[in-house]
Design a protein around this nucleic acid. Structure first.
Lengths: 215, 215
DNA sequence: TTGTGTGAAACCGTTCACAGCG
DNA sequence: CGCTGTGAACGGTTTCACACAA
């Protein structure tokens, strides 16, 4: 949700949130090039969308007005999107599973979003436990409930094999997790109120293969 | 597309293709448990969807009729979905970038779909070149065009850092790639006719974080 | 001119609700 | 009964098209 000038709340759809995240990345790249203004049609091209969509998103969800005949202010817009997407306080994220995928995720997310970073990693493999991997100490899985509760963590990334995913999810939900990012190729079941975002590599690849075949 | 009894073609939407891939996985799990029949409402629960949606998908896209008061035949349906999703001939996939993420993808996809597997891997890092990683030999990037053309590869997975992604994509498109699965946190630009599926970990995490905050 | 803001229309995709069949 | 198949209704997004401002 986002608070408007008049205090009313607007529910923002999942799709819109995804696009805002994308716009922000494009804006950061533009800012790095020293750009100050950007019109909707350029933002649209860079994000592979349409100008009308961009304007709608920025007006309705972000409530950041553009300047007529000049477009949007890059820095201002970047900030405004942050106000919608980011929590006011920094949030910790738990990572469960420190195999190849887990390590890739750790590396990937390192230093990207300071307000949203992995602050605890868990694995059952005794080879990994208590070693520091990509800057984060790996803890045994049975410390998970206590650590998650103590550190007030509400978001978790599941990067364990399919067979262990549901079990891990149950553990996380009991520890008070409210958002899950699931990489395991299983459809996790969780009670209402827990948001699940699935990243399904097989599905994505099959999709790419299917549409690559079309004439 | 899928060929119907009457020979007419139905264009299947991206979302539907994603769900079919998901149904197939659920069906495989059911088959492994020895289940023979499954009603739409159960498939829906397992896939986190609705019964009506499942029935529509199976009827319109897969054209696999269920048995009234018994549901669908697990094996038959699994096969029918394969007829829609899979290419008749096995397809090779190229992987570019054999870092942590690339290795995770190699491990993840190994032995999952025999008709759709990684048959060539590339990286610029001399540490990796010519070594066999997760069963696949890693080749230098400058062999990419020739290898992709020779082996008639049309699908590629981009797992390189953001800065190199567009360049690699251009190389792939020139080599005749028609479907891209992109893990790099950049919006790749490609000509129409090249299908791009983005897997954007940062976006997914921000989404999970945002919706985890909602009351 | 250029480019925003925005009702209104068009376009999906999803769900409802029920006829029909085993 | 139980469960499928499906026209019809619904609801959410996306796009159109144009008034308006700099």
């Amino acid at each position: 949700m986002s608070r408007r000038d008049d205090g009313a709340m607007t529910r923002i759809s999942e799709k819109t949130i995804g696009r805002l995240s994308l716009y922000r990345r494009v804006l950061s790249a533009l800012a790095a090039e020293g750009r100050r203004q950007v019109p909707s049609h350029e933002l649209a091209t860079l994000a592979r969308g349409t100008p009308a969509q961009v304007r709608r998103d920025l007006m309705e969800a972000v409530r950041c007005p553009g300047r007529r005949s000049q477009g949007y202010d890059v820095a201002e817009l970047n900030k405004a999107i942050g106000d919608v997407l980011d929590s006011p306080r920094a949030e910790g994220v738990a990572l469960i599973g420190v195999g190849n995928l887990g390590r890739a995720i750790l590396a990937y997310l390192a230093g990207r979003r300071p307000k949203l970073k992995i602050t605890a990693a868990f694995d059952n493999d005794l080879e990994k436990v208590n070693r520091i991997i990509k800057g984060t100490r790996c803890r045994p899985l049975d410390e998970l409930p206590q650590t998650v509760l103590e550190r007030d963590i509400h978001i978790a990334i599941i990067a364990v094999p399919a067979g262990a995913a549901q079990e891990v999810a149950d553990l996380l939900v009991r520890a008070g997790i409210r958002g899950l990012l699931n990489f395991a190729p299983v459809r996790i079941q969780a009670p209402a109120g827990v948001f699940i975002e699935d990243i399904d590599i097989t599905m994505a690849l099959e999709k790419a293969a299917f549409f690559a075949r079309l004439p």
